[in-house]
């Protein structure tokens, strides 16, 4: 719905703008893999907002599962406050990591517990360390992952739930896993969400694989576009204002031109 609504909107714009942009919208970056199944997300649509409980659960999935391999270096712990976690909760989360700081007055580097202002701690010191630990594969930073893939949220959701045995006759590379939605179908990431109850949700939601995938996508989408709610709210105001202004401008124009024979 959201996508198609957006496309329709953009097409409208494109029509107003002449045929020039239409082809660009049709531009494809074909995934060689299967077509994506469609999941409805609360953040979709012109008025869609962040489903805070899903996104909070999603953060838990990220923290307990994905963060073993994936960094989210563009986020800071303080950002979690916008997700609806309490100040005390966020401080506690930040304090669980150890941060290198310094130099202090004696010129020494020292370690301290994380603070609100610290960026999310990365699991590996650098790309080489990640590759060394993961069979040569490099897990991408997830801060903007849903913006960095075509149909990002749908794609990530499909990817996380798209693992299965390879079709007969397909030879897999060493350490590779079959995934229906990954381009080329061979992905180095082992299925991160494999069984029900992998995380234990505090709100009692049943942690099925589907549920965890859904939740973590809600979180990742929020992380990629933390401005989304403010942006859409402002957009609605602007468009309403402009439509009214347009009516006034048009009426004024008619009035002014009324006495010109043309």
């Amino acid at each position: 719905m959201f996508r198609s609504a957006l496309r329709a909107l953009a097409l409208l714009g494109a029509m107003a703008a002449g045929p020039a942009v239409a082809p660009a919208l049709a531009q494809d970056h074909a995934h060689e893999a299967e077509e994506l199944p469609h999941t409805h997300f609360h953040f979709a649509g012109l008025f869609g907002t962040v489903d805070r409980s899903a996104a909070q659960r999603g953060f838990q999935v990220y923290k307990e599962v994905c963060s073993a391999c994936h960094s989210m270096r563009l986020l800071s712990y303080r950002n979690l406050l916008e997700l609806g976690l309490s100040d005390a909760e966020v401080r506690a989360i930040a304090a669980t990591v150890t941060v290198n700081d310094g130099p202090n007055d004696e010129g020494q580097m020292f370690e301290r517990p994380g603070r609100l202002s610290d960026h999310f701690r990365s699991p590996f010191a650098n790309d080489q360390a990640a590759r060394a630990a993961l069979n040569g594969a490099l897990p991408p930073d997830l801060s903007v992952i849903t913006k960095a893939r075509e149909e990002g949220p749908q794609y990530v959701h499909a990817l996380l739930t798209g693992y299965s045995d390879p079709p007969p006759g397909m030879t897999m590379g060493g350490g590779m896993n079959y995934n229906r939605y990954f381009p080329g179908n061979q992905i180095a990431m082992t299925p991160p969400l494999r069984e029900e109850g992998q995380v234990e949700y505090a709100d009692g939601t049943k942690a099925t694989v589907e549920q965890m995938a859904f939740d973590v996508v809600n979180f990742l989408q929020w992380a990629a576009e933390p401005e989304m709610e403010a942006r859409k709210r402002m957009g609605v105001k602007w468009v309403l204002f402009l439509v009214i202004l347009g009516g006034l401008a048009y009426a004024t124009k008619r009035k002014i031109w009324a006495n010109v024979p043309h």
Partner: peptide, 28 residues
């Protein structure tokens, strides 16, 4: 007066892109 009408329409298209589909024309 006539340019003002066009300008408002232009801003509506512009605002729709910026606020509701800011990455539509960009490459992921």
């Amino acid at each position: 007066a006539k340019d003002s009408v066009g300008m408002v329409v232009y801003f509506i298209v512009f605002a729709s892109l910026v606020f509701f589909a800011p990455n539509l024309l960009g490459d992921p």
